[in-house]
C-alpha cells in the first residue's frame, strides 16, 4: 500500500512547523518538503520511521541527530549534514559542505556528489558513502564506523584517526598523522561490497584501498611532540 506524502512548503511555513510535525507522536509515514531554499536545520532531531524527501538545497545540519528516519535531499547540503546521526539513513543527490556526519553514531549517510572538508570528523559508528570526492582533513579523529570514498580524498586524510575504517578508490592527496594504508583482506572486501550495495552503488570493491590508524598516538609520548 502506498500512502500519499504530506507536503510541507517551506516558502509558506517555517522550518519549526516541519520539525514540530515530524516530532509529533506517530507522524505520517511519508513527507515531501518543497522550496527549502537552503534553509537550516531541516528535519532535525527526527526519531520516527518516516521517509522525508526534500526537493532542493538545504543549509546547515539537515537531518541532524537523525534516528530511524530515511531522509533524501534532492539537491545540495550545507555544513553538518546528518551530524550526530544515530540510525536510519540520509542520502543527498548533490554535494555536501563540510563536516558531513560529524560525530555520527550509527545509520548510513550517502552523498552522491562531493563533500567539503572534514567529512566524517569524529565519526563514532555511522557509515558514510561518498560517490564523489571528499575535502581535506576528512575522518579527522574518527573513532568508529566506515567511510567509503568513490572519488579522491583531500589532504591529511584520517589525521589522528582512532578505529574508523576508510576505503578510498581514487587518489589520496596526503595521509594525516597516524593514518596508514592497510592491507585489503577478504573481510574488508566483503564489508566494502556490503556498504556499496547498501548505498546503491556499483563500484568494484577491488578498486579501493583501505586506510586506518597506525595507533602510534594512542599513548602520549614526548617523541611524538611534532605530531600533536
Amino acid at each position: 500500500m502506498t500512502t500519499t506524502a504530506v507536503t510541507v512548503d517551506l516558502a509558506a511555513r517555517p522550518v519549526r512547523d516541519l520539525n514540530a510535525a515530524l516530532h509529533a507522536p506517530d507522524p505520517a509515514p511519508r513527507w515531501r518538503v518543497v522550496n527549502p531554499a537552503g534553509a537550516h536545520n531541516v528535519a532535525v532531531g527526527v526519531d520516527a520511521p518516516v521517509a522525508v524527501q526534500i526537493d532542493g538545497p538545504v543549509g546547515y545540519y539537515c537531518a541532524g541527530m537523525n534516528q530511524r528516519a530515511d531522509v533524501l535531499v534532492r539537491g545540495n547540503a550545507g555544513t553538518g549534514l546528518a551530524e550526530n546521526i544515530m540510525s536510519g539513513s540520509v542520502r543527498i543527490t548533490g554535494s555536501a559542505s563540510q563536516s558531513v556526519a560529524a560525530s555520527g553514531c550509527g545509520g548510513l549517510v550517502v552523498v552522491d556528489g562531493d563533500t567539503g572538508a572534514r567529512c566524517g570528523i569524529a565519526l563514532r559508528g555511522a557509515d558514510v558513502v561518498v560517490g564523489g570526492s571528499v575535502g581535506h582533513m576528512s575522518a579527522f579523529m574518527a573513532q568508529a564506523g566506515r567511510i567509503v570514498v568513490c572519488g579522491d580524498a583531500g589532504h591529511s586524510l584520517g589525521d589522528s584517526i582512532y578505529e574508523a575504517r576508510l576505503y578510498v578508490r581514487g587518489a589520496v592527496a596526503s595521509l594525516g598523522t597516524d593514518c596508514v594504508e592497510k592491507p585489503m583482506l577478504g573481510e574488508h572486501l566483503a564489508e566494502l561490497a556490503g556498504l556499496l550495495t547498501w548505498a546503491g552503488r556499483d563500484e568494484d570493491p577491488a578498486a579501493f584501498r583501505r586506510y586506518g590508524s597506525a595507533r602510534r598516538l594512542y599513548h602520549f609520548d614526548s617523541a611524538n611532540h611534532t605530531a600533536y
Binding site: 522550518v15 520539525n19 514540530a20 536545520n41 532535525v44 543549509g59 546547515y60 555544513t79 553538518g80
Partner: peptide, 14 residues
C-alpha cells in the same frame, strides 16, 4: 555558525 547550531539544538528539543 554558533547561532545556527543553537537553533539546531532548539529545534531538536522543540
Amino acid at each position: 555558525d554558533l547561532a545556527i547550531k543553537i537553533e539546531e539544538l532548539r529545534e531538536a528539543t522543540d
